[in-house]
Design a protein around this nucleic acid. Structure first.
Length: 448
DNA sequence: AATCAAATAT
DNA sequence: AATATTTGAT
């Protein structure tokens, strides 16, 4: 068509969400005639799935539903999070619905059939947003505070903001969005940017288009959610892909989860809170060392052994999986890998000087001990209780009445007695739950 | 072909 | 230091 957008901005990617094939064909033709890149999906959930993979940079989403349902709005929320321009297209015009859509971040609520002019000039939304971002970026460059209020702030989450004041955990969604803005800024500044990461890594460096992709801030909260998901998935099935699904955090990608998981597995993650008390920990070479030690990669599911593990754990040194020929079964991976198995949780068992802060001690009543034991997972998910290790240690010390300095043996006993089930299926790294209560176990094993 | 986990880069 | 990206498996 005569008036496309080429030459004005680079490639505009449009996702069309529409279950009705006729509409889709028409729309695709129309969009393509104006040089948009079009991706079609049938449902909102499909779209969401695609978005969470985050593999493609999407500029616009046209949510074309016949009667907007919950999913459409869920998708909209995700779009907002990812800062994607969203259009609602509906068979009938409903003012209330329109209002709701706009309130939740849609750019337009339109009625079918779609006015061609809108399609024709759709790119202007994209450009406009880019310009705004650029402005915002300039504004925030001198202040190190990083001003967030660029672009249209669709305030879909007033709740979150309130929440963030209570707990000092910044809602991850917000965080995520901010970062995305930054990223987009970078992209904007290089219009010629092309998605060619596969071709040449150096090119990307030169391009400086994507210096840093959206950076998820792993708050204690988000981490807790991860841990919860892990439990939900079960010991054997903790693969990033599934985790992402279960967590259902808009915008969170598999890669990000994997990356975080990696950190957790090697017990190298500290929550922001914990980080603040930046205590030095002596034996920190362990990351590289443990990684070397475990250079034989094995994936696979956990053995589904439920008995007799706690005993071994209690010993703390002999790992259950080092015993061959149990009835261990692996959903993935060979069966001959027993010798190669290694225990991620325990790789990090280098001697640490106990660095766990016991600051939350007073918050936990001994009544809660049972609750925690009975329902550990819930407590993990509890924002205020992001440190199960602390909690448990605390309770134990309540019970034992021991001083916090010389309690390591007892702690070990206590912890494993009550949480042994958590470890009963220790197996290959891929499937293991990361150790969420790291420091405590460091303590536990420190005398080994 | 997908996606894991290690290794490396930012 | 924390997270993302790349690389090399499976």
């Amino acid at each position: 068509m005569a008036i496309g957008y080429y030459g004005i901005i680079d490639e505009v990617r449009v996702v069309l969400v529409d279950p009705e094939i006729e509409n889709v064909t028409k729309m695709v033709d129309l969009l393509k005639s104006y040089d948009y890149e079009v991706i079609t999906v049938r449902t909102s959930s499909e779209a969401m799935e695609m978005l969470s993979k985050g593999e493609k940079k999407i500029d616009v989403i046209i949510i074309s539903v016949h009667s907007p349902n919950l999913d459409s709005f869920k998708l909209l929320a995700q779009d907002v999070t990812l800062d994607i321009i969203s259009l609602f297209v509906c068979d009938e015009y409903n003012e209330l619905l329109a209002k709701k859509a706009l309130k939740e971040g849609a750019c337009l609520f339109l009625q079918r059939p779609l006015n061609e002019e809108i399609v024709k000039y759709l790119w202007q939304f994209v450009l406009r947003r880019k310009i705004e971002r650029e402005k915002a970026k300039k504004g925030s460059e001198d202040g190190d505070k990083m001003i967030v209020n660029d672009v249209d702030t669709h305030n879909m989450d007033g709740n979150n903001e309130e929440l963030s004041k209570e707990t000092n955990d910044v809602p991850n969604i917000e965080e995520h969005r901010n970062n995305i803005h930054e990223v987009e800024d970078n992209i904007v500044s290089n219009e010629k940017y092309k998605w060619r990461r596969k071709n040449n890594r150096k090119d990307i460096k030169k391009d400086k288009a994507i210096k840093q992709k959206d950076c998820v801030k792993w708050t204690a909260d988000l981490h807790a959610k991860l841990m919860k998901s892990l439990e939900q998935l079960g010991e054997g099935k903790c693969y990033p892909k599934d985790i992402v699904e279960v967590m259902d955090v808009p915008g969170l990608t598999r890669m990000q989860v994997a990356s975080h998981l990696q950190k957790c597995r090697f017990n190298n993650w500290r929550s922001p809170e914990e980080r603040k008390s930046s205590r030095r920990i002596s034996g920190q070479e362990s990351l590289s060392e443990s990684q070397q030690r475990s250079s034989n990669t094995k994936y696979g599911t956990m053995p589904h052994l439920q008995n007799n593990i706690p005993n071994q754990i209690e010993r703390g040194l002999d790992f259950p999986f080092s015993t061959p020929n149990t009835s261990n079964t692996f959903a993935r991976g060979e069966s001959s890998i027993q010798e190669k198995l290694y225990p991620p949780q325990f790789q990090e068992i280098q001697t640490h000087s106990g660095s766990t802060t016991m600051s939350d001690a007073e918050n936990v009543t001994s009544d809660e001990v049972e609750t925690i034991n009975a329902n550990f997972q819930q407590h993990i998910a509890e924002p205020n209780m992001s440190y199960p290790s602390n909690i448990i240690a605390t309770n134990k010390s309540d019970i034992e009445g021991s001083d916090s300095n010389e309690r390591e043996d007892c702690d070990a006993y206590y912890n494993f007695n009550h949480m042994g089930y958590f470890f009963q299926n220790i197996g290959p790294p891929g499937a293991n739950l990361p150790n969420s209560y790291d420091s405590e176990f460091d303590q536990v094993y420190s005398d080994a």
